[in-house]
Design a protein around this nucleic acid. Structure first.
Lengths: 99, 99
DNA sequence: GAAAGTACTTTGTAATTCAAAGTTGAAAAA
DNA sequence: TTTTTCAACTTTGAATTACAAAGTACTTTC
């Protein structure tokens, strides 16, 4: 017997990125500072994880101003949704085997 | 709101170790070559992942001979069971939020 | 004009991952 | 009895990843 490790998405192996995707999957958009607060990360670290997800085209970035303050919103893309769903399915299968 | 990233176990972040734990959770024991075959890894790579899990005391190692050949068996410990269960619970919660 | 806030980027260091090569000890083959 | 083989590692080295901290650019508020 063999197990394919490729059912799991490398981009979601890190728990910060897993959580970011989880948040963006259930919220139509989320901004930088709210994510930073939610996940308790330094801004540099958060920015680099977001960049990694953007590089995979799993999230999109929209910059604007709210009042006079700059605001960056992150949203999941269709590609991101598909990939995340597939990853969760793989995790679910693994969990199911345990029961 | 805040999310604790610590609900996820660092030792299980890597998908090789996640799969090893999954196999050992449902099999009372598994040997080196069977794991190697199952996961399609080089022996060095597998040995290092097993060592990482042993270091956490999540698995135990039993060396013996089968016929005249050396055989190393790996088994999950109680500590490993508890940690793995907790990790799966965290994953399950994350999945549940998506539905 | 100084300080503060947003959202980065850069820098530097430490940790992680992996393949490949080397090692050990016992057994089988020559 | 020397050699080869096999199991199960350990070591090495290189690439990648993760993270904090510091630096940057632009703007606004004091």
């Amino acid at each position: 017997m063999r197990i394919s490790l490729e059912q799991f998405d490398k981009a979601f192996e890190n728990r910060v990125r897993l959580q970011i995707m989880s948040v963006l999957a259930v919220n139509s958009a989320y901004d930088f500072n709210a994510l930073k607060d939610l996940l308790q990360l330094t801004d540099g670290n958060l920015a680099s994880h977001l960049k990694a997800l953007e590089k995979e085209q799993y999230i999109s970035i929209t910059k604007s101003f709210i009042g006079r303050k700059p605001n960056t919103q992150y949203a999941i893309t269709q590609k991101g949704k598909d990939a995340f769903k597939k990853h969760l399915q793989a995790l679910e299968n693994l969990i199911k085997q345990q029961k």
